[in-house]
């Protein structure tokens, strides 16, 4: 009897595995294999103009040792941290604020919800070009308007103190709808009874938000924030179109630095080492997300 159960369990496991096999194969082909290639390349000094450098594993740690001593790499990581923290905080704040304003459905608000989604569905390169025009002083409607009202604004993307903030603003404009959508969905899930009870008890709007609404949407905000944090590392197209990493290197984030090494200088080994460290960083972030969302769910449960 036990043997028959074991046999059945074994067959069940096998059939699950068979069912999963195509998906695992696709995953291996499109994710794991290139990932392994990336790591292997990072262990070589591969320079596309020097074919002999391919598969040269004589100093596998070479690129990583060099990265530790490369001030431009550490600078790019610092720029990335500033960009990610600023964009995530702003996206959460703006997304939450707009969602709270639009939570009650009226025809006007439904239209506003749809309109606010537009930036998120535009291709990033289009967003970049749009804002490139906005930031070009002599043709920008924004700059012209400010000049017209007697408050001329200097060029933002060529000012080393403001260029990174320009990227933050555009990134926020493009992606706050993501938070807005998630928060709007969470707001729909709040039951009416605690809100009505708070109203009867004479709670202010702030108290209602702080003690009733916020606990309901906190999980959503954490998840949205962590997703945006991971996505903020991919802010490449905006930087490419708006600042090219400049002025100087004030907007040169890590992926842009990797791109320069690999695509401009053909140093694929070094570029792969940077990319590998980035993947490791994202992996760590994903692990933290998993732990945090697990903790939040456990707390909610």
């Amino acid at each position: 009897m036990r043997a028959a159960e074991r046999d059945w369990g074994e067959r069940r496991r096998r059939s699950f595995l068979m069912g999963l096999a195509p998906a695992l194969f696709v995953l291996a082909a499109i994710t794991i294999a290139p990932g392994i290639y990336l790591v292997l390349t990072s262990l070589t000094p591969l320079n596309l103009t020097l074919p002999d450098t391919a598969w040269d594993f004589s100093t596998p740690q070479g690129n990583y040792v060099e990265l530790l001593e490369d001030p431009r790499f550490s600078h790019s990581v610092w720029v990335q941290v500033k960009l990610s923290v600023a964009t995530v905080i702003l996206q959460l704040a703006v997304g939450l604020g707009v969602a709270l304003l639009l939570k009650t459905p009226t025809s006007m608000r439904r239209f506003a919800r749809a309109a606010f989604l537009i930036p998120m569905v535009l291709p990033p390169i289009v967003v970049g070009i749009l804002w490139r025009v906005m930031f070009t002083v002599d043709v920008s409607p924004m700059h012209r308007f400010m000049a017209w009202i007697g408050l001329p604004v200097k060029s933002i993307i060529t000012d080393p103190d403001l260029a990174l903030w320009a990227i933050v603003v555009v990134e926020t404009w493009e992606w706050f709808p993501f938070t807005m959508l998630m928060v709007l969905a969470a707001l729909q899930m709040i039951p009416d009874s605690p809100l009505e009870a708070a109203k009867i008890d004479g709670a202010t709007r702030w108290q209602t938000f702080r003690f009733i609404v916020f606990p309901y949407i906190r999980q959503t905000l954490v998840i949205a924030g962590l997703f945006r944090l991971i996505d903020s590392i991919k802010a490449f197209p905006l930087i490419f179109v708006l600042t090219d990493g400049g002025p100087g290197d004030v907007t040169e984030v890590t992926n842009y630095y990797a791109y320069r090494q690999a695509f401009t200088f053909s140093l694929w080994g070094y570029g792969s080492a940077i990319a590998t460290l980035m993947v490791a960083g994202i992996f760590l972030l994903s692990w933290i997300i998993d732990r945090m969302t697990g903790a939040v769910h456990a707390e909610a449960g």
Binding site: T158, D159, P160, G245, G248, T264
Partner: peptide, 22 residues
């Protein structure tokens, strides 16, 4: 063959000078 490297550095260096960073 390595002018692209120098080119990138000149672009950044001149960018820093023009923007008043250095």
């Amino acid at each position: 063959h390595v002018y692209p490297q120098a080119n990138a550095q000149i672009n950044q260096a001149m960018g820093r000078v023009i923007s008043g960073q250095m």
